[in-house]
Design a protein around this nucleic acid. Structure first.
Length: 506
RNA sequence: GCGGGUGUAGCUCAAUGGUAGAGCGUCAGCCUUCCAAGCUGAAUGUUGACGGUUCGAGUCCGUUCACCCGCUCCA
């Protein structure tokens, strides 16, 4: 077991202990791939979401030409007309039948397997091989010739798709990487979209899907936004929301869960300008993650190889991932956000399927066209996990042995207010300060147990500052500020505490 | 979906087939004048779930669920 997995277990343990993240429906034994956010996790996730909305929708950075950019918000339905997912390509691409080999434990896409047999002969063994793989084909032919005990001419060979085989022929089939017969399972559907039914009657007519991405809701409303919001291309539409995928293997805490949250922008621009906007968004998004505390060593941009490009990204200039070095991927990286050049794929497909015109008329250019799309698609759940991983700071010197070094902007608790001792007028004074501050920020009051324990509790919760009222406070009207990261203690006038915090929190 | 591992209090872990425990945390009281201090007390468990073997199962067996690791998958 590597030290990284130990650290991950410690993080999961802290998340539960301090109310960040719990297993979903835990009292019933949990459910694979689902997690609940506790009180502190909810605050953290909301803070990350709000920071994104503020920095991308309300105050986005200036564009490449120095002019302000325009982004508007949206909140579309999780369930849409099922034809949406036909148009988007998810119904086709999400349902690949797979075949497993019981012997070698390999898994193959059924439509990538072909079978080799002797022409005209039925009932004999047949040999599966991988499509477009000469080595695999040669191996299958060799095994077949050994089976029939003679060399076969090319014209004696018969091939067919594995998916076209009847069940009894499949039972006589030898897998690509084995010599035993009948080790392949029947092709099984992997439905990555959650299916549900709209209305009380559950028949095929009423079948629908939970969205596997929030993006499509934006494309569906492109024309509505253009018609009603006086926006001009280039502009963006942003949306935050839940998405659902029946992942084959949910893993790594909330990194790959079946219900998760996305923060997506669809940036609509002229095709000629798409490339410069693509570069712009790659830069903006990487810097944004770094501005929240992810150190640049742990963040990298990675261009997708041609063979891993999504169906929608093949026509544009590709996809860059913003990747983070999670403890469970280290020394490698895991995807935090994908910035994809989708071309005009989505609007074009929805035009085809809906028969509605989705072109944009550009007045200054006097030109009608389908805008191209740059999509910075970030994982809110993954971002929250990255923030938890980055903040987790072991420190054997301090009582808690670990503290969460959240950026104050994201910290679930912004400040704690303590009476040093729970008597002599200190609790009254501290409580008054707490009442005043909680109108503006999530702050906590704690008078129980020793001051050291209270500091330690706040360290694990990632609270950046503690204000302590002591006996001097009663005479000089000042309090001690204890800094989470430096452990330094400074004095500030009690009537200046709110300003002091406002300067640091905005 | 496959293989391996794990599952006992909120957390970390003990318990030869024979009475389910400890530390920490939490809570209450006393105390305490700046970093999990001290004292006293309390709550918390169908030992993940179901079934079997046994006089007796946390322990052995089977099934199942969840988590971790490795495959596979990740539009």
């Amino acid at each position: 077991m590597s030290s990284n997995t130990i650290r991950m277990e410690e993080l999961v343990s802290l998340c539960k202990r301090r109310g960040f993240i719990y297993p979903a429906s835990e009292i019933y034994g949990g459910l694979n791939g689902f997690w609940d956010y506790g009180p502190l996790g909810t605050e953290l996730k909301n803070n990350l979401r709000d920071a994104w909305w503020h920095d991308m929708v309300r105050c986005p950075p200036a564009g490449p030409d120095g002019e302000p950019v325009s982004i508007v918000g949206l909140d579309s339905s999780i369930i849409q007309n099922p034809r949406v997912w036909e148009a988007s390509g998810h119904v086709g691409g999400f349902n690949d039948p797979m075949v497993d080999c019981r012997e070698t434990k390999s898994r193959y896409r059924a439509d990538h397997l072909f079978c080799l047999g002797v022409k005209g002969e039925t009932g004999g063994q047949i040999y599966a091989y991988l499509e477009n793989d000469d080595e695999s084909l040669a191996s299958a032919r060799k095994k077949l010739e050994k089976y029939v005990k003679r060399t076969l001419a090319d014209e004696e060979l018969d091939t067919c798709a594995l998916t076209s085989l009847p069940a009894e022929a499949l039972a006589a089939t030898v897998g690509p990487d084995t010599k035993a017969v009948g080790t392949l399972t029947e092709p099984r559907q992997f439905n990555l979209m959650f299916k549900t039914f709209v209305g009380a009657v559950q028949d095929d007519e009423s079948a629908a899907y939970l969205r596997p991405e929030t993006a499509q809701g934006i494309f569906l409303n492109f024309a509505n936004v253009v018609d009603t919001m006086r926006v001009k291309v280039p502009f963006g539409i942003a949306q935050v929301g839940k998405a659902f995928r029946n992942e084959v293997t949910p893993r790594n805490f909330i990194f790959r869960s079946r219900e998760f949250e996305q923060m997506e922008i669809e940036w609509f621009c002229h095709g000629d300008e798409a490339e410069q906007w693509f570069e712009f968004w790659c830069d903006v998004r990487k810097s944004w993650w770094e501005s929240l505390g992810l150190t640049s060593d742990n963040v990298m941009m990675r261009k997708h190889d041609a063979d891993e490009l999504a169906h929608y990204a093949k026509e544009g200039c590709g996809t860059f991932d913003v990747e983070y070095r999670f403890p469970f991927t280290a020394p490698g990286y895991g995807e935090l956000e994908g910035v994809a050049h989708r071309g005009d794929y989505d609007l074009r497909r929805h035009e085809e399927f809906s028969k509605k015109k989705l072109t944009y008329f550009d007045q200054p250019k006097n030109e009608r066209y389908l805008p191209h799309v740059i999509e910075p698609s970030a994982g809110l759940s993954r971002g929250t996990l990255a923030m938890l991983c980055e903040a987790y700071t072991p420190d054997p010197e301090r009582a808690s042995k670990v503290y969460m070094a959240f950026n104050p902007r994201l910290a679930p608790i912004k400040a704690a207010i303590f009476p040093l001792v729970n008597k002599d007028g200190m609790p009254e004074m501290a409580s008054k300060l707490h009442q005043d501050l909680r109108r503006r920020w999530p702050v906590q009051y704690d008078a129980k147990q020793s001051i050291g324990k209270r500091y330690a509790r706040m360290d694990e919760a990632g609270c950046p500052w503690c204000f302590t009222v002591d006996s001097d406070s009663l005479t000089d009207q000042s309090v001690t500020i204890r800094d989470r990261d430096s452990l330094s203690q400074d004095r500030v006038a009690i009537d200046q505490v709110e300003n002091w915090l406002a300067e640091r929190l905005g």
